[in-house]
Design a protein around this nucleic acid. Structure first.
Lengths: 150, 150
DNA sequence: CTCCGGAATGCAACTGGGTTGCACGGGCTG
DNA sequence: CAGCCCGTGCAACCCAGTTGCATTCCGGAG
């Protein structure tokens, strides 16, 4: 885990590499995304921004996130709870996700060898395959076992 | 495609097999689901019910759908537009879905040989794998080609 | 350094899917 | 016939996400 200042600089660099101005909101959101390993919901980010005394308007947040996704810096995943969650878009394109059925958290799994593209019917044109594994995350599995559940 | 009356009887039978009363709403929703090959959104069902002169309260519809899913008669999928869509849960469990990036329609793909379950990290417990293929459905691909798009 | 234009931000009001609480109704049981 | 339970309908509500518009910020031109 890099030092906070390094994260900040890293975020600024990533943004400026895209030829865009490194505004406070963009840097902040990107920095927050860089600190987390799971994906973060919109309200999670709002809360995180609030916690560090730098509250973000929700509209700004939506727009920054859209921009980050458009720039390929972030990616969004929609969980069963129909809430979008965002994570940094690392090298791994076409990676799989893990969604915890207990706590609803979404994790990005490391890149895997590409699957054989399943055959689509007739005139359908397949472009991309999304894979989401459902189950229980480490934390939830542990508490479940501690409570005697299978 | 069976005759409408047969669909109706089929729906009644499916419901009564579960030991539940075949109420008008349940039969109607199940019948509507049986007539479609793609998945249907909540508002699509509301509209369909309206079109056949048998309007459905949206709360009733949600409850009927929840019940159908709980009974294993239907299944729900959430698309990119974070709208849940419902389809009949045929024999095919663990089937893949196809989501059209152009029109947003969701289709159920026939059952496929199960994939190798991707390895989940450390304490994670994988239970189920969701696979969604993104691309263009037959209709959208055709109109796109007709307009000279690739 | 200052000015200016476009991009980014903030606020408020709105949309729409989904949920909850509660009252009504109709069939089934004792 | 009375009571009960389940399903239905209505209305109000919640929350993620969007839109319109006024304001502010940033980076380049002068």
């Amino acid at each position: 885990m890099p030092a906070p200042a390094a994260l900040h600089d890293n975020a600024v660099r990533l943004i400026q590499e895209r030829g865009a101005s490194a505004t406070a909101a963009r840097v902040q959101v990107l920095r927050l995304l860089l600190t987390t390993h799971a994906t973060v919901s919109h309200q999670g980010l709002t809360q995180a921004a609030l916690d560090e005394g730098q509250p973000l308007d929700k509209v700004t947040l939506y727009r920054v996130l859209d921009w980050l996704v458009a720039q390929g810096l972030a990616h969004s995943v929609t969980g069963q709870d129909r809430v979008r969650r965002f994570g940094i878009a690392d090298v791994h394109h076409g990676h799989a996700h893990f969604e915890c059925d207990a706590c609803g958290q979404l994790f990005c799994l490391p890149e895997r060898a590409s699957l054989p593209m399943p055959a689509a019917p007739d005139g359908f044109e397949a472009r991309r395959v999304d894979i989401t594994i459902h189950g229980r995350c480490a934390a939830c599995a542990q508490t479940a076992h501690a409570n005697g559940f299978t």
